[in-house]
Design a protein around this nucleic acid. Structure first.
Lengths: 151, 151
DNA sequence: TTGAGACGATTCATATGTGAACGATACGGT
DNA sequence: ACCGTATCGTTCACATATGAATCGTCTCAA
C-alpha cells in the first residue's frame, strides 16, 4: 500500500531547506501509514476496511454503500469492491433496502464489530507512539501548520 | 490514487485535540498528494513516473531497474510495471546490460527528458503554493516535528 | 400518468502498490 | 571446473484507488 518515495530535486538556491518541508511531510505521512497498515494487518484489517467498519459501528445501523463512500471520501465503485472483500471476510453483510430498491445496505456482523474494536486498539497504540515521538514543544505549531495546510 | 479519509474516532477524553494531530497529518498529506497528482496529470505524468524520470535524468546514464527500485523505495515488481508504462508512453527505453545479462537498464528518451522538465516545473509550482500556505512562524517547528517523526 | 433525468450499485479498464514464485544468470569457495 | 547460493527481472495473485459506462429504480414536472 505504500507510496513511492518522492523525487529529490536539484536544489534551487532559495531559502535553504524550505523546498524540502513538503517532501518531509509526504515522507512522514508515508512512514506513518506504513506503521498503521502493519499494525492493522496483525488483526487482519487495513485502514480502508477499518474505516468502513468504524462508520457502521458508530452509526449503529446499516448504511447504504453510497453513504459509506461519501463518508469515507471515495467513489462508489471503490466501496463496492471494499464491501465485497469485507463480505468475503465475514465482517459485513449486504442487505436490501426495503425503502429504495436501488440501494444496498452494508450491515456489520458480530465478527465485524469485534474486529473493529481490535483495529481501534491497534490504531490507538500507533497513535500513542506517534504522540510520544512528537517534540511536545512543537505539537501546537504542528497542529496549527497542518490545519493551515488543509483547505 | 487517493487514500480514503481516515476513520474518525470517538474521542477518548485525554489531552484535547492531541489524538487528532496524527489524522491531520494524514489528511494534509492526502490533500497535498491530490494536488500534486492533478498538477502532474496536466503533463501526462504521475508522481511515480516523475520519480523514475528524475532519477534517470539526474544520473545522466541508464540505470538497472533494481537500482531504480532501491532509489525509489519500492519492490522490483513495481518497477517492472512502471517501466512498462513509461516505455509505452515513449519516455523510457529498456536496453540490455552488456556487463550483466541478468540486468536490464532503463534509458530516458529525449521525450522523457522534456516531460521530466515539465513535471519538475509543475511540482515546483505546487511546492510554492504549499510554502505560501504555511504560516511562516510555524515553518521551523513543522520541519522539526516532521524530522522527529521520520525514523 | 408518464417520461426525462437523477441517482444507486455494479462492471470494466486502468494505475499503483505489495509479496511469492520462477527462470536465467553471476559468483565464490572448494 | 563445478555447485550452491545470491541476485535480477518478470509473472501472478491480490489490495486499493479512480473514472467511464451500464442497468435498474425513483421522482417530479407537465
Amino acid at each position: 500500500m505504500n507510496r513511492l518515495k518522492v523525487p529529490t530535486e536539484s536544489a534551487p538556491a532559495t531559502s535553504p531547506g524550505a523546498e524540502q518541508v513538503m517532501f518531509s511531510l509526504l515522507g512522514a505521512a508515508h512512514a506513518l501509514e506504513d506503521r498503521l497498515e502493519r499494525a492493522l494487518g496483525q488483526v487482519g484489517l487495513s485502514m480502508s476496511k477499518l474505516g468502513v467498519l468504524t462508520q457502521l459501528v458508530e452509526a449503529r445501523e446499516p448504511l447504504p454503500l453510497s453513504e459509506l463512500a461519501a463518508r469515507l471520501s471515495c467513489v462508489r465503485s471503490n466501496m463496492t469492491q471494499l464491501v465485497d472483500r469485507l463480505e468475503a471476510d465475514g465482517l459485513v453483510r449486504r442487505i436490501d433496502d426495503a425503502s429504495d430498491r436501488r440501494s444496498v445496505l452494508a450491515s456489520v456482523t458480530r465478527l465485524g464489530e469485534e474486529r473493529q474494536a481490535e483495529g481501534a486498539r491497534q490504531l490507538a497504540k500507533v497513535r500513542e507512539g506517534f504522540t510520544a515521538a512528537l517534540p511536545p514543544a512543537d505539537r501546537a505549531a504542528l497542529a496549527r501548520a497542518l490545519a493551515a495546510l488543509t483547505p
